[in-house]
Amino acid sequence: MEKLFVDETIAINAPLGHVWAALTKSENTRQWALEFSSGGPEFHIESTWELGSPVLWKGQDGTVIVEGNVTAVQENKLLRFTVFDVRSEERPLVTEEDGITFKLSEENGRTTLHVLQGDFSVMTDGAKYRDASAEIWDKVLPKVKVIAEQHQ
Rank of each mutant, 00 (worst) to 15 (best):
L79V: 01
D85K: 03
Q117H: 02
T124E: 11
E107W: 01
T24G: 02
P142Q: 12
L113S: 05
E90M: 10
E89Y: 15
E90Q: 13
K143Q: 04
M123A: 14
D138H: 12
L104N: 00
L4G: 03
I100Y: 01
W20G: 01
T71F: 08
Y129P: 02
G126V: 01
R87Y: 03
S37K: 10
K58C: 07
T82S: 15
H44C: 09
M123Y: 11
A132D: 10
V122M: 08
V83M: 08
H151A: 15
V94Y: 07
S121H: 07
L34G: 15
Q60E: 09
V122H: 07
M1S: 15
L51S: 04
V83A: 08
E8L: 10
A72Y: 09
T101D: 03
F84W: 09
E50M: 10
T71R: 12
R91A: 00
L23T: 12
E50T: 15
T9I: 13
E107D: 12
E67F: 11
Y129K: 12
Y129C: 06
I12A: 00
G126W: 00
V6G: 01
D138K: 15
V70K: 05
P15C: 07
K77T: 07
G52F: 11
R80G: 03
S133R: 13
F84E: 04
P92E: 01
V66Y: 03
G52Q: 10
L141R: 02
V70G: 04
S88F: 06
V94D: 02
P54K: 09
E42V: 03
A127M: 08
G62E: 04
S133P: 09
V94E: 04
E75I: 07
T24Q: 08
I147W: 00
K3M: 05
D125T: 09
H18D: 12
M123L: 14
R130K: 10
D85N: 08
D85Q: 03
E46I: 06
E107A: 10
V94F: 09
Q152F: 07
Q31S: 05
V73H: 15
